[in-house]
Write a protein that binds this DNA or RNA. Structure first.
Lengths: 345, 345
DNA sequence: TCCGAAATTGCAACCGATTGCGTAAAGTTT
DNA sequence: AAACTTTACGCAATCGGTTGCAATTTCGGA
């Protein structure tokens, strides 16, 4: 395979110019000790001969790959693809390659992906954890070799690692407070695996908001599921049978919120009159469903850009900077699905 | 940077076992000429010492990277992230790395990304073309070195390259025919850059369906735009001013279809009674909008899997197989946005 | 017990770029 | 013109794994 024309190396350039390979190597990267004239000659010849640097040889020697690994639970969600789009933008600008893997929400896959990425000699790693990851043992190979890791969205405490997040606690608090202010008092919270900070924090915010407004937190009103929207029918059936019927639902993502809404509508329930709904993420679907879904705007692209920028800075600076966590701004977007008081158009 | 513990090489294993590095190298990859016992010893020692193969050295020698490049217009769409999810699944199974770049819908970026990927010595390339790419000159570096390219979705004719597509002509034909069968005769078609096969073919199918049903094709009823949904307001204004008012819209993607629908609803137009709408892609939003959007189901994940599988097969087989194009199955999904005749629930 | 075939393993060159150190060439100073 | 800096470039080792071919060991058979 790959048997095209002859590969041009620095040796070919050296020979053509009657110079040594080392001079050519230096010339190609503007070494200050070389004569300007020589550098010009080398570069001209390189272009004329169609020279391309062999990254393997270069990486082997320099022990750097200029490649960043990305490990996410799932690629095909609006949120995650936006994050990755942001990451790609930055890494591309900085001439880093991007090696992307998905854990498919399983620790097993996550472990195997980390191994693969490690073997690929990535310079740094961007991670959002799988649904059921419990510990970080599988990342130890990276840490031992001082390969910096930046976690984003689904993060974890980890000495020496950096985290990019939004204030999920506050967001949960705001969403819940909004519902309470709309007159809701019997609020269901749909959440995911509480091992994950995003869900635990949102739940915590929800709980605190209730308490702060004189509503007692009730464990039975918290439903933890996979948030994929698959179980919506069952959940709605369950909700409608609860003794004091819930008057609001705060879901930890838009996908599940929308699925629930569709089921509620199917069951003849009026939104928001009978039940208000608030989601999370501000996916496109939230703007499209009727009534439009109140949700938390999550700056996905910015998160990707920031995560990538932070990692690259860490790679470029020799000094260990001490920032361990950065929090991006979210915002509550109020739409019709939760507006009980005000008149709808 | 990266100054962790000592790196273990095959030389360390060789020394520990009193063997030669070449034997260790062979043992690690189950060379048939080695004694089984020796292989076992080598592997055991490798694990005990924490050996990791250095891909750079290996790739340098073998002139292969076991890495596949992916170049797409935009990462952050439901369709594209699904395709990539499919690609990742296959490449991961086959132990290939994935280097992903986005052209941001611009030829300029596309050219620069191809250069980057070429310099990264990818073994093969998966491409969906940017919005305004006119020729394939920038891919010639790949072709000269016999690096196989598989195009998907937005493809182009190219000797020696492979294409994975759906039958866009037929899909356009079916969508239009469906509208005609619902009694529509004044059908607008919203399309993108006609340089791209996907749009040209859908337009062609639309046009042929009209002709086949005795409706004359009218260039004024074709609106070519960016399909991002941004110009929806302007387009709807324009539509509502047309002399015989259109009774249907066939949009080349769901995003624009939904944006148009929202504007139509805003303008007090009843869907589908006054204007029917059909989209393309079967994005999640199509199921969520009211009325639900009739659309063409596009097997995105399967397309990703097939593209990756085809490329890997091509890499593994020495013989040049002759398949130049594969067509995946699409399907028309009829929903309320186009059902004029039948009663709605 | 000796010989050749078969089974194992080692030697050494190689992939292509990088870089510490040494040296030759050019320029300065007095 | 001798002695000393600068400036510019070359030598050769190195990164770690791979592989064609040679060398050594093993073993069956005579």
């Amino acid at each position: 395979m790959n048997k095209g024309k002859k590969v041009i190396t620095i040796y070919d350039i050296a020979e053509a110019l009657n110079l040594s390979p080392s001079t050519v190597s230096r010339g190609l990267k503007d070494h200050p000790l070389l004569k300007k004239e020589t550098i010009r000659k080398i570069k001209t010849a390189a272009i004329k001969l169609g020279y391309r640097r062999n990254k393997f040889a270069s990486n082997l020697r320099q022990k750097q790959s200029f490649t960043i690994g990305v490990l996410v639970p799932k690629l095909n969600s609006y949120f995650m693809s936006s994050v990755i789009s942001g990451i790609e933008k930055i890494t591309n600008q900085n001439e880093y390659g991007l090696l992307i893997n998905q854990s498919q929400e399983s620790v097993g896959q996550e472990i195997s992906c980390v191994k693969t990425l490690f073997d690929s000699h990535i310079d740094g790693l961007l991670v959002s954890l799988a649904y059921d990851t419990k510990d970080l043992d599988h990342f130890s190979c990276m840490m031992e070799k001082n390969i910096p890791i930046v976690f984003f969205d689904r993060v974890t405490n980890c000495v020496g690692c950096m985290s990019i997040v939004i204030d999920n606690y506050k967001a949960g608090y705001e969403a819940t407070t909004h519902l309470i202010e709309q007159g809701c008092s019997n609020i269901i919270h749909l959440t995911g695996n509480l091992l994950r900070n995003v869900y635990a924090d949102r739940l915590h915010g929800y709980s605190q908001a209730l308490t702060d407004h004189g509503i007692t937190f009730d464990q039975n009103r918290v439903i933890a599921g996979d948030l994929s929207g698959n179980g919506a029918k069952t959940i709605v059936q369950k909700l409608l049978q609860m003794k004091p019927r819930p008057d609001a639902i705060f879901a930890a993502n838009d996908t599940s919120a929308v699925s629930i809404m569709l089921e509620l509508i199917q069951a003849g329930i009026k939104i928001p009159e009978e039940i208000s709904v608030v989601g999370f993420n501000n996916d496109p679907i939230s703007r499209v469903i009727t009534p439009q879904l109140t949700t938390i705007d999550y700056p996905a692209i910015e998160m990707g850009e920031l995560a990538a920028t932070s990692l690259i800075n860490k790679l470029k600076s020799t000094q260990t900077n001490s920032i361990s966590s950065m929090v991006l701004q979210h915002s509550l977007i109020v739409r019709d699905s939760s507006l009980k008081n005000k008149p709808k158009n």
